[in-house]
Structures are given as structure tokens and as C-alpha cells.
Design a protein around this nucleic acid. Structure first.
Lengths: 170, 170
DNA sequence: CTGTAATTGCGAATCATTCGCATCTACGTG
DNA sequence: CACGTAGATGCGAATGATTCGCAATTACAG
């Protein structure tokens, strides 16, 4: 699953940020790199266990904390459950997430307005932005239509398995 | 502390949204109305206890949940601690919060860009926004300067007693 | 090859929030 | 204005994601 070149590259990335290249960290980074989803610690742990049956959940949490600190992974929060942290490899361009409350689908949206707001606020107030947490919620076109027709299962308690809020680090 | 007119007005507001006007709810709403801060359940509980020594923390949580559902209070998340929920009375105009990582100060910022982004995304993708969670972090002008000079106490673990992320409901 | 500081695994601890349940109470109705 | 009942409350216990303590390992500079 982890290719040789990937292993080498990740080792270098870790060295660059001054982190020891432990097999657990290599594994976690590889897992985050090969998925499009936003995984929480538990999900990462489950996947990691398939390659390293001994890995512990605490290690996953600690590795993620270090990797986040080093800027290799980004932590995300999901709109409806801010207690659960999700992670993704830092690589995709700046984007935000819109979660449909009807079907749970997550739509990635892109807009320059947020960066613009930061720029303007920065200039106007002298603020130095380092971090932002942005997430949207509502209904996708299909669910919005259903809702207007009254055929949307209310309180379907959607399971947000994929997306969550987006946190942008500079 | 709770004026007669306030009491009457809150009663009406509660009736309008179909909630029973219990003394606990009146108290909690009054507390949220008379402060500029963003309080978490514990803080609200502490204040409420001064007027109703018997009130329970669980009641505070349940009341806040109902009031939020009814649109009378808004729930906020703070950037550095998304596990703790803060609340404020719904009244102030749309604004966002910027938290200084140096001194912990919270600056309310206003910008039309977020609404603009929602509008544009709504038109372009047919999304129906109902909710957004926005919060910024960084350094205020003073702390930014100190940081450049290297005189900013690093990792001062600022206590964010006042502000937190902003959640906007329609 | 060695010494050592960083890291791991394990289970226990945190701690904000939620729940279960028995007891009250707000408020529409008669 | 007393009643009945759905809805609220208080209490303590439960949840559940994340963090901690500590002894055992291990990455990696010298």
C-alpha cells in the first residue's frame, strides 16, 4: 500500500519539519494521502490497524497533533459535531465545505471571497490572520426541492461520513 | 435584575416560538441579553445560580438547546476549543470573530464578503444555506509587532474568556 | 555502536455534554 | 379557577472524543 517512493518522500517531509520518521507516522500520512475523505482519528486508527495491528489510538492522536503542528495535515471541524476532529493531508487547494442536512452529502465549494475578506480585514485593522475555520450547512438542490414539497425525511440524522468544516492554515 | 418589561417581552418571545415560559428560561435569556460576552453553559449556570440556587446545569443545557432551536440564542464555537459551546442572544448584526493568539483578545469584525460568498454559491450551485460557522485566528497588531520583535510570550496559552467563533443562522 | 531524548502502547483520567427517571409545572380546557 | 397532561426540571450517572501517566521502545546524532 505504501509505495517505496512515497515512503522516501514522506521520510523527507518529516525530516524537513524535524519529526522522527516512525512507522506509525508514515502509515498515518500515507492513509491520509490516499483518501479523498476527511477521516477522524478513529477512522484513521481502523485503517492503520490493517497494516499495523499493534498501533494504538493514542499514538494516532499524538501523531496527528505533531503532523498538524508541522503543517503536514490539517484539522477540520464538522458543522454539526464540533467535538469530533477530522483530518486531511495538506495539499488540495483552498476550498470550503457545504454539508447537506437532508442527505448528508458534502459539497466542496470554492470562492475567493473568504481570502478577500481576510485581505481586506487585514489591511483595515492590521490583523495578521494565521488560521480560519469555515463551514457551511444547508440543503443541496435536490433536498431543498424535496423539502419544499414536504417529502424530505425530517430529522433523518444524516451521517456525515465524508465531509466536515474546513480549516484553512496559511 | 430582570425588569418587568423584559420579563413580559421574553414571555411573549417564548410564546411566539411555542416554548413554555419557565423561570429558568426567562433567567437564561435575561443573562444572555445583558452581557456582551459569549458565555458557555458553565458560565451561564454560575450566573443563573445567583438568582436561582436550585437551577441545574442539565437544565441550562436543555434550555439552551431549545432556545437555539427556536432561534432565540445562537451557538458559537471558539477556534481553539471546538469542544466547548458558547452562546449569545440573537440580536447583534452579522459579524465574525477574530481571536488574537497572543493576548486572547477577541475582535469583532464585519465584512459583507461572507454573505456575498453565500449568495454567489447559492446562485451558482442551487444550494440553500441555513447555517455557517466562521471563525478567524491570528495576531492583533500589537501582538503581531511583538512577535516580529520576538518579545511575544510564546505559548502563553491565552484564555479565551470572551470570544469565540461565530455561527450565523438565517 | 551508543546514549538519550523522543515515541509508543496501554489503560486510566478528563470533562463538556447528554441521559434516565422520578418529580414538578405551565398552560389550554372545561 | 381547579384539572390533566405534555413538557420541564434536578439529580446523578453515563457518554464519548481526546488526553495523560508511565514503563518500555526506538530513531537517529555523534
Amino acid at each position: 500500500m505504501i509505495t517505496q517512493e512515497q515512503r522516501v518522500r514522506i521520510r523527507r517531509q518529516l525530516a524537513e519539519v524535524g519529526l522522527r520518521a516512525t512507522p506509525q507516522r508514515l502509515l498515518i500520512l500515507a492513509i491520509l494521502e490516499e483518501t479523498d475523505e476527511h477521516l477522524d482519528a478513529e477512522a484513521i486508527y481502523e485503517r492503520a490497524r490493517q497494516w499495523d495491528a499493534q498501533i494504538s489510538l493514542a499514538t494516532v492522536y499524538r501523531a496527528l497533533a505533531k503532523l498538524k503542528e508541522a503543517g503536514l495535515v490539517a484539522q477540520r471541524y464538522f458543522a454539526r459535531d464540533h467535538r469530533r476532529e477530522y483530518y486531511e493531508a495538506v495539499s488540495k487547494g483552498e476550498h470550503y465545505h457545504f454539508t447537506c442536512l437532508g442527505c448528508g452529502k458534502v459539497i466542496e465549494v470554492r470562492t475567493p471571497r473568504i481570502a478577500q475578506a481576510r485581505q481586506e480585514l487585514s489591511e483595515a485593522l492590521g490583523l495578521e490572520f494565521t488560521h480560519a475555520c469555515i463551514c457551511f450547512e444547508g440543503y443541496c438542490p435536490e433536498c431543498a426541492a424535496k423539502r419544499r414539497r414536504g417529502t424530505l425525511e425530517s430529522r433523518a440524522v444524516p451521517r456525515f461520513t465524508v465531509g466536515n468544516g474546513v480549516t484553512i492554515d496559511d
